[in-house]
Design a protein around this nucleic acid. Structure first.
Lengths: 195, 195
DNA sequence: CACCCTACCAAGCATTTGCTTGGTATGCTG
DNA sequence: CAGCATACCAAGCAAATGCTTGGTAGGGTG
C-alpha cells in the first residue's frame, strides 16, 4: 500500500465520519502524522481526494448492477441479487457509501461532481426497471406504487451504512437475508391481511 | 409571527437544506435581509437557534408516542399509529426532522445537546417495545430479529424526509398507507413464499 | 418633550480554512 | 559520487467563520 493510498484511506475514514465539508485538511494531516501542506505533495486538492474515492467505487458497483440486469434470471431473483450486492458494497466500502449518502447533494452542486447526479439517475433506473419487471411478470403485487417502492428499497438498503459495521456480529449476508425477507414478505404473520 | 420567529424559521430552512455546520450566520442574516451581527440581538448563539428548534419539536413528537403506548389498542394498531404519527411529523415539521436526522450525531458531541442521545434511546424503546409486543401477541412473525426490525422501521420512516415535500402530490397519509402495507405484508404477491 | 424598547448597522477581532511557496532529508540509480 | 525522485517541514496568505462592541433610527409611553 503506497503512502498515497494510506493517506486516501485516512481521508476516507474522516470524510465518512464527519462529512466532507466538516473534515479539514489539517484533520487528515494530523491523523497521518504530517503537516497539512504536505498533503499537497500527494494530491491536487481536497476535492481530488473524494473524487478518487468515489469514482472507482461507483464503477465497480454499477458494473455489478449491470451484470445482474444482463443475467437471464427472473425479476425476484434479480431484485434479491441487487439488494445483496448493495449490502456487500456497504460491507466492503463503508466509507465510500457513507460519503456518497451524506455528501452527494452538496458535492453535486460543483461541476466537477456532475457525474454524481448521473449515477443517481442510473441507480433509479436499475431499481425501477426491476420493480416494473416484477409487477409485469406477476411476482410483485400489481398495486405497488413503483416510485414509492423504489424509494423505499433504496433508502432502506443504503441507510444501513449508518449502523452496519463490517466485522461485527452480523455479516452483510445475514443482514441482506433479513432485509430481503421483510421487503418481500413483510413483518406481519402470513395470511393476516388487514388491508 | 414575531421577528424572532421569522428568523428562526429562516434558520430552520437553511439548517435543513445545508446542515447546521455548513450554514453560516451570514447565510441566515442574508436570507433575512440583515447583517450577521444583528442576529445576536435576537439569539445568544447559532447553537441556541437549533436548540429552540429541536426541543419543542421533540416534546410534541414524544408526547404523541406516549399517548399511543398508553392506548389500549393491539400491537399492530399501535405500530401503525406510530408510523403514521412519524410521517405526520415529517409533514408538519420537515426542517426539524431533517436537522435531527442529519446533525444529531455532530451536535450530540456537545454537552448542551446531550438530550439528543436520550431522545434517541427513548425512540428505540418505543419501537422495540411495540415490535416485542407484536411478536408476543402473535401478530408479527416470531422469527423476526427485533433489533434489525427496529432499525429497518426507524430508517425507512425517517429517511423519507429526504424526498417527501409537504403540499406535493402525495399526502403524508398516502405515503404512510403504502409504507405500512409494505412493512407489514411485503412487496411480493401473497402466498408466493420462497423462504 | 424625555425616556426607553426594539431592531438594526458598521466595523472589526480572533480563529479556522484550503492552499502555496521555498526549502530539506533520505534513499535509489546510473 | 552525481542526479533525481519521494516525502516531508516551516511559514504564511487570503478568505471565511462565529461573535462582540458601540452606535443609530423609529415608535410607543409617561
Amino acid at each position: 500500500m503506497s503512502r498515497r493510498e494510506q493517506l486516501l484511506a485516512i481521508a476516507a475514514t474522516l470524510f465518512a465520519e464527519k462529512g466532507f465539508r466538516n473534515t479539514t485538511v489539517r484533520d487528515i494531516a494530523d491523523a497521518a502524522g504530517i503537516l497539512s501542506g504536505s498533503l499537497y505533495h500527494h494530491f491536487d486538492s481536497k476535492e481530488s481526494m473524494v473524487d478518487e474515492l468515489l469514482v472507482p467505487f461507483q464503477d465497480e458497483l454499477f458494473g455489478k448492477y449491470d451484470a445482474i440486469l444482463a443475467s437471464g434470471d427472473d425479476a425476484r431473483t434479480k431484485l434479491e441479487a441487487a439488494v445483496r450486492v448493495s449490502f456487500e458494497a456497504i460491507d466492503q466500502h463503508p466509507h465510500e457509501v457513507a460519503i456518497f449518502q451524506n455528501d452527494a447533494d452538496h458535492l453535486g452542486t460543483f461541476e466537477r461532481f456532475g457525474y454524481l447526479a448521473d449515477r443517481n439517475a442510473q441507480s433509479r433506473q436499475v431499481w425501477v426497471s426491476l420493480i416494473e419487471e416484477g409487477v409485469r411478470t406477476g411476482v410483485l403485487r400489481p398495486d405497488l406504487d413503483v416510485t414509492l417502492t423504489y424509494r423505499f428499497i433504496r433508502d432502506t438498503v443504503w441507510v444501513a451504512v449508518r449502523w452496519y459495521r463490517p466485522g461485527g456480529g452480523l455479516s452483510h449476508t445475514d443482514v441482506a437475508d433479513q432485509y430481503v425477507r421483510i421487503l418481500l414478505d413483510g413483518i406481519a404473520i402470513e395470511g393476516n391481511d388487514h388491508g
